[in-house]
C-alpha cells in the first residue's frame, strides 16, 4: 500500500491532492484514507450536481452552503485546489456577486473533474496493489 502513496506523490500534483498530508491526517492508515476518498468522491459528485440546480433556481444561500460543504470536505482530504475554488464560490454567493457565480461554478466543476480523474487512477492502482 505504501507503493500507492509514492504513486500519488509522483503522478499527482500536490495542488490537486496532497497525499502525504492526507495520509498524516488519517494517522498513516492508507486503507482508511482510500475509504474516505471514496466517500468524498460520492459526496462531491452529488454536491456538484446540486450546485447546477441551485444556480438554475437562483438559490444563492443553497449555493453558498453547498460550496461551504465542498470547501470543508476538500480541506479534510487535502484537495487544495478544489478547496480554493469552493472558497471562491462560497464568497461570491454570500456577497451576492451574481455575475461571477456561473464562472465560479464552472471553475469548481473543472477542478472537481480533474480530482475525480486522479481518484479513479488511485482506485485502480489500489486494486492492482491488492
Amino acid at each position: 500500500m505504501g507503493q500507492i502513496m509514492t504513486t500519488v506523490s509522483a503522478a499527482t500534483s500536490r495542488e490537486i491532492l496532497d497525499g502525504e498530508e492526507l495520509l498524516a491526517r488519517c494517522m498513516g492508515n492508507w486503507d482508511f484514507a482510500l475509504r474516505v476518498l471514496g466517500k468524498f468522491r460520492a459526496r462531491l459528485e452529488a454536491d456538484v450536481a446540486d450546485l447546477d440546480q441551485a444556480l438554475g433556481v437562483q438559490d444563492w444561500d443553497l449555493l453558498a452552503r453547498l460550496a461551504h460543504r465542498i470547501k470543508g470536505a476538500s480541506a479534510s482530504v487535502s484537495a487544495l485546489q478544489l478547496r480554493q475554488r469552493a472558497a471562491e464560490l462560497e464568497h461570491a454567493a454570500r456577497a451576492r456577486r451574481v455575475a461571477e457565480l456561473s464562472t465560479c461554478v464552472e471553475r469548481l466543476r473543472h477542478e472537481s473533474n480533474r480530482l475525480v480523474q486522479e481518484l479513479s487512477v488511485l482506485e485502480l492502482d489500489a486494486c492492482e496493489a491488492r
Binding site: C26, M27, F40, R43, V77
Partner: peptide, 11 residues
C-alpha cells in the same frame, strides 16, 4: 460533512 466527521472520528 460526513467526510470530515469520519476523518475526525478516526483520529
Amino acid at each position: 460533512d460526513e467526510v470530515t466527521a469520519a476523518v475526525l472520528e478516526h483520529s
